[in-house]
Design a protein around this nucleic acid. Structure first.
Length: 263
DNA sequence: CTCCATGTTTAGAA
DNA sequence: CTTCTAAACATGGA
């Protein structure tokens, strides 16, 4: 489920389970996930080393080698996750890459669909720039956000999901942000009033922070969110009316037509 | 068998 | 140039 809150949860999981352990070897099961390096190259970069720090930009997770001369880059596609595996235990299904520690434990990168990415970079910020990523959705300042969204002539849901405009928000969380802001997914950015853009910014941060606190588990979110209801025959938690599907950017979104009227 | 899925990239049409 | 849509990728689940 890797959008920003999921990846932030993985980052904290890696902090707790993957740092300061010497890597004995790496295993790459799915070579096609590697970008710009080979399985052997990954091993050479990490063998005998430790990871000592993490960063996140949007949906990308970075882990620094102990000498800070290079960072492991992970993207989780639609189905990726991390799993720490104890000595003697077997890694999860669909494990695509593992870091095998000298202590006998393993950190597995698993993904049902091979849509993620494993890479290496000297500098996370340069990597993000080279990929054309916009500012991180949790780091962007209010003024920059409001200015950017109000310059965009297209639909606001698509804009929220555009990683070059704002990094970290995907299909699911864009729905939640728009629901909390009370804005229709197809409202045009340049037709938002100042107060509406402000509300969108507030909702963006409230939703992402709540989701990170919930460890990206929909069932752990407080009441009043539509994320756990998507695709189900459930009433809007605010007005009790029916939620509707809507196509945008080639994806299916969910919203409440009563609480999120078209502009 | 069919349709759909938390992402990204690319091609083509307005 | 901007914006939108569909398809492709990989691998299932319903």
């Amino acid at each position: 489920m890797p959008e920003l809150p999921d990846v932030e949860t993985f980052r904290r999981y890696l902090d707790a389970n993957g740092l300061d352990r010497t890597i004995a070897r790496t295993h790459v099961e799915a070579e096609d996930l590697l970008e710009g390096l080979t399985a052997q190259g990954l091993g050479q970069r990490l063998k005998g080393r430790r990871l000592t720090a993490t960063r996140r930009h949007g949906k990308y997770l970075f882990a620094a080698r102990d000498d800070y001369d290079g960072w492991l880059v992970l993207h989780f596609g639609m189905s990726g996750f991390l799993q720490a595996v104890g000595p003697g235990e077997s890694p999860p299904q669909h494990t695509r890459m593992t870091l095998d520690f000298e202590d006998g434990g393993v950190l597995a990168y698993a993904a049902l669909r091979k849509l993620g990415l494993i890479a290496w970079t000297d500098d996370p910020a340069a990597f993000a720039a080279a990929r054309g990523l916009g500012p991180d959705a949790l780091a962007i300042e209010r003024a920059a956000f409001v200015q950017a969204v109000r310059c965009h002539r297209g639909g606001v849901k698509c804009w929220l999901m555009d990683q070059s405009a704002l990094a970290g928000v995907g299909n699911v969380y864009s729905d939640e942000v728009l629901f909390q802001a009370g804005l229709h997914p197809k409202r045009k950015g340049n037709r938002l009033g100042e107060a509406e853009a402000d509300r969108l910014y507030d909702a963006l941060h409230a939703v992402l922070e709540a989701a990170v606190d919930a460890r990206a588990d929909p069932d752990r979110l407080p009441e009043g969110h539509i994320l756990p209801l998507r695709g189900k025959e459930a009433p809007c938690p605010r007005c009790g009316g029916p939620l509707s599907p809507i196509k945008a950017c080639g994806r299916t979104g969910w919203y409440c037509p009563a609480c999120q009227p078209a502009g």
